[in-house]
Design a protein around this nucleic acid. Structure first.
Lengths: 223, 223
DNA sequence: TGAGTTTCTTGACGGCCGTCAAGTTCTGAA
DNA sequence: TTCAGAACTTGACGGCCGTCAAGAAACTCA
């Protein structure tokens, strides 16, 4: 099993550039956990003192609003990390995570991770890189939900997803309910908008949540 | 002038913990700029290769949405930094900054800052700290605009502002138009909601954009 | 102080979209 | 394959809030 667990550290971009020996050091620090699909990885109000690394699988991260509604913030893939704020202060979580598929996770406690960053400065620079991208993404998301219509947000989501997959035809990676909370709307509205796009010929809906984009440019002009 | 410029580096939290000599090193790298109120510090589509430090003043940072509307993302104070994404890749800005009052700014080029982080690892840890907080804040803001009503968001904004100032009576730091783009709404709606809160006795509006909060608990129950 | 500009307020109106409800399709386990 | 539960679709309805417009108030600067 040593090989398997070692893969966990190797996979993670923030530990790239470290010599194998140094990766072993890290391996001795992390704790491994496994979750089945649907299991909760952490909840709101958990003490927030562990950095989480997705070794294998997918994790949905939700945040709870004051009125009790949920917002899907991230869809973490293998190699992604979570728990950023964990690294510094005693904070409480306001989010909760749920495995979307069977998932392996590595945890590193705050103190250990801080020591690691002191010892291997390249790690903190890699983490900065990750945070920078996430900040940029969140800034765009905030702007988008605050200023654009649901229709425009959905259109952006579709074209961006297609672009990142390098294909016009793809399967929606989320159920409509999750997609709805991600875009700040409701499943009903998603259904209606998709039907509308299809009627306009901008997309084609196929069985199994498969979407084919026919006219990305026109789609983005949707208001 | 040496003393004055040195203050710039001393003021910035991310350079704390450095010896004076090391701060001098940094001082020799930064470039100083001064802007009058209303001046533009940087625009969308600028090449993004400089980290900006607010040495003195206030800066509004907006982002442009696809439909041309603006979103106020940050209100930077003395000691705050901006340009996070700058630090890593050749990205283009999607935001623009504007001085709210006469403002002094220090800029550090990406290459120089990366060298600094290599030399003084504590800097990168401090930057991580800043990013972590900003991420947490943006996550809350995204969730809030996506799931809560304008009324609830405005109520949160008022009570949080009051709390951070440790007083019930305070002056709104922004014009209604800016406050509106920050909260993802319009000046008209802000006016209406404030009038409504006042009619309900939850707040009292006084001349000069001064607000007095009478019942913070009840205010937060607004939907 | 006063004129001109910007900002703010209030009203009227309409559209987007959230909610509730009912019917249909999909999915996964026995 | 079958069937129960989940997910999805579609319709009807209503409220929140964005837009336009006009008047009031506040601010700026000579």
């Amino acid at each position: 099993m040593a090989t398997h667990t070692h893969e966990c550290v190797q996979l993670v971009p923030i530990f790239q550039e470290l010599a194998e020996e140094q990766q072993d050091t890290i391996e001795s620090i992390v704790r491994h956990h496994h979750f089945e699909a649907g299991e909760t990885l952490f909840s709101a109000d958990d003490p927030l003192d562990t950095l989480m690394i997705v070794a294998n699988g997918q994790v949905k991260v939700y945040q709870l609003a004051a009125n009790g509604r949920e917002q899907l913030l991230y869809l973490l893939q293998t190699g992604d990390i979570d728990g950023e704020a964990a690294l510094f202060e005693n904070q409480r979580r306001t989010s909760f995570g749920e495995a979307l598929v069977p998932t392996d996770v590595c945890g590193i406690r705050r103190k250990d991770f801080q020591a690691l960053m002191q010892k291997f400065p390249s790690i903190s620079i890699n983490v900065l890189n990750v945070f920078g991208k996430r900040l940029t993404q969140l800034e765009r998301q905030t702007t988008s939900t605050a200023t654009e219509s649901v229709e425009a947000r959905l259109a952006s989501y579709l074209t961006e997803t297609a672009a990142s997959l390098h294909t016009d035809t793809f399967k929606l990676p989320l159920k409509k309910k999750d997609l709805a909370t991600f875009l700040g709307t409701t499943p009903e509205t998603i259904s209606r908008k998709l039907t509308r796009f299809a009627q306009q010929g901008l997309i084609t809906q196929k069985p199994g949540k498969v979407i084919q984009i026919n006219d990305a440019d026109q789609l983005l002009l949707a208001e």
